[in-house]
Write a protein that binds this DNA or RNA. Structure first.
Lengths: 140, 140
DNA sequence: CCTTTCTGTAACCACCCTGGTTACGATTAA
DNA sequence: TTAATCGTAACCAGGGTGGTTACAGAAAGG
């Protein structure tokens, strides 16, 4: 069996939520304790999730008193696809099992499935790239 | 937290593999023991996965000696989207966390995320609907 | 009938992922 | 120096996933 992007995991959802909160407080540094309230999670988890966004250059953080987190770019230029990629990297979307190596049919099937996985990820990212964090701030 | 379609799960992948094996043996009934070999799994798991396809009307089964499984429709009319829906039903694709109910911003964000989830599923199904099991049998 | 070969399904299990929690060192404002 | 905050690891409980076993039901074939 091989790993997949999505387990029963809410990291993307939480990351979008956090980015929206940061977009709502431009020019401020917001600390992880405050950020944890609206998504109903905890400061350590907030720092874990935002750490991935920081590694992708989407946000930055400052240590110490009056420290916290802020977006690194205008929310109009931050798409859900950016966040998806920062959170899920190149993890597979569909998930592909390991076939019996002695069965040639299995090799063909799984090769095709990997192609489908790439197509699925592309379709997903295209959809997500059409929504920005700024859009989420002013819905409808 | 809320559930999601994909955990670390290979059921879709295995289901496509099994459907391809059945498509390669038209007019035959293939038993779960034989079907388990190529995907490198076991008969009980094969029956569990194919059970979902049967519930969706994609395959049928016969009990007893000389029993087994067969496609219910020509492989040209069986798309990966059909299999995806049979396996994953209406499970969410992106996964959405439960926000703090006392935070109105959280409600808006998660409502938008549910909309994104519907868009993502639509994009995924559109992509998967463009490939049939017959296509997988004769690649390239 | 009886035996054999299948499906159908439940039960149990080990493995792993996820996120809550605690902890503690490093950083930095005051 | 103190206190606030990040960075990160460790530990844990809960749940999902699929391997395995088990056994009742169905049906072919004598």
């Amino acid at each position: 069996m091989s790993g997949m992007a999505q387990a029963t995991n809410t990291r993307f959802s939480v990351a979008v939520h956090l980015a929206t909160l940061l977009a709502d407080r431009p020019g401020e540094l917001v600390d992880s304790g405050e950020l944890a309230i609206s998504p109903a999670t905890n400061p350590a988890h907030v720092r874990r999730v935002l750490g991935r966004l920081r590694a992708a250059g989407l946000v930055h953080s400052v240590s110490g008193p009056k420290g916290g987190w802020a977006l690194s770019h205008p929310p109009e230029s931050l798409t859900l696809a950016d966040i998806w990629t920062a959170i899920n990297a190149d993890d597979p979307v569909l998930g592909v099992h390991l076939p019996n190596p002695s069965c040639p049919v299995g090799q063909t099937v799984t090769a095709n499935l990997h192609t489908q996985d790439a197509l699925a990820r592309q379709a997903l990212l295209t959809t997500l790239s059409q929504t920005t964090i700024a859009t989420l701030l002013t819905p409808k």
